[in-house]
């Protein structure tokens, strides 16, 4: 069990109050309806196959501007290399967007939207329209400052918000694709992690995945 990210979000919200409990419940109900509609076409677990990439951002917790800015953030936190899929390939932002629409992390959504706007404002001081349009070297420079808490004129818990985005990026890369990221299991493949057995509840003892998981039945 590791609750570090949720606890970190609670610490951030303490300094940058988020949504009320009622707001979260309403948002969760709204998102559940959306997800249910989308999932009617689900074909067995690859979550967001028809969303996020070509049809524009799905309506999760983020507005379109924040969605594009934070997508670029995830892509720099975990960039792709020739033999390693990155956050963008794995559609981590789809995961992030969904998580930010439901409890518990919906509470930190206002702080992350504020962060996205602040990153775009930084980009404008560097002559770009938005963070995502900065050259990656400059994106990295901005993120490096954020990670150390040294972006100027920004009254947000910078270091903590960087850590929240970092944690969300790792989760979106390596969590089961049913949650929206790890597209086509690209995160699992990148680290050589075999598809787990029993990915969904209720499948019982015989419900091992197609590869039989990595059980060692006396082998």
């Amino acid at each position: 069990m590791d609750r570090a990210l949720v606890d970190l979000a609670a610490a951030v919200v303490r300094r940058h109050p988020g949504l009320s409990r009622r707001d979260v419940l309403e948002l969760a109900a709204f998102t559940a309806t959306l997800v249910a509609c989308r999932d009617k076409r689900r074909d067995g677990g690859e979550g967001s196959a028809s969303s996020g990439g070509t049809t524009g951002p799905p309506r999760g917790g983020l507005d379109p501007t924040a969605y594009h800015t934070l997508e670029a953030v995830t892509a720099r936190i975990l960039p792709a290399t020739t033999d390693f899929a990155g956050a963008r390939d794995a559609r981590v932002i789809t995961y992030v967007d969904r998580q930010l629409a439901v409890a518990p992390l919906a509470r930190v959504t206002p702080a992350l939207m504020a962060l996205a706007r602040a990153l775009d404002a930084q980009a404008r001081t560097r002559g770009a329209q938005a963070f995502a349009e900065l050259p990656v070297v400059e994106q990295d420079d901005v993120l490096g400052q954020l990670s150390r808490g040294t972006l100027p004129d920004l009254a947000l818990p910078q270091r903590e918000l960087f850590r929240v985005m970092h944690g969300l990026t790792l989760e979106g890369f390596l969590a089961d694709p049913v949650h929206g990221g790890n597209h086509e299991q690209r995160g699992w493949k990148a680290i050589g992690f075999p598809e787990p057995s029993l990915r969904t509840p209720g499948a019982g003892h015989d419900g091992h995945g197609p590869h039989g998981g990595h059980g060692g039945h006396g082998g």
Binding site: V6, D7, R199, G204
Partner: peptide
């Protein structure tokens, strides 16, 4: 037993087992 499955996010990192610190810290 059938409620348990191998999803790290759902089981080990969210409120499957323990309350959220926003609600019951």
């Amino acid at each position: 037993d059938g409620d348990f499955f191998h999803d790290e996010l759902a089981i080990a990192r969210r409120s499957f087992f323990v309350p959220d610190p926003f609600e019951e810290p």
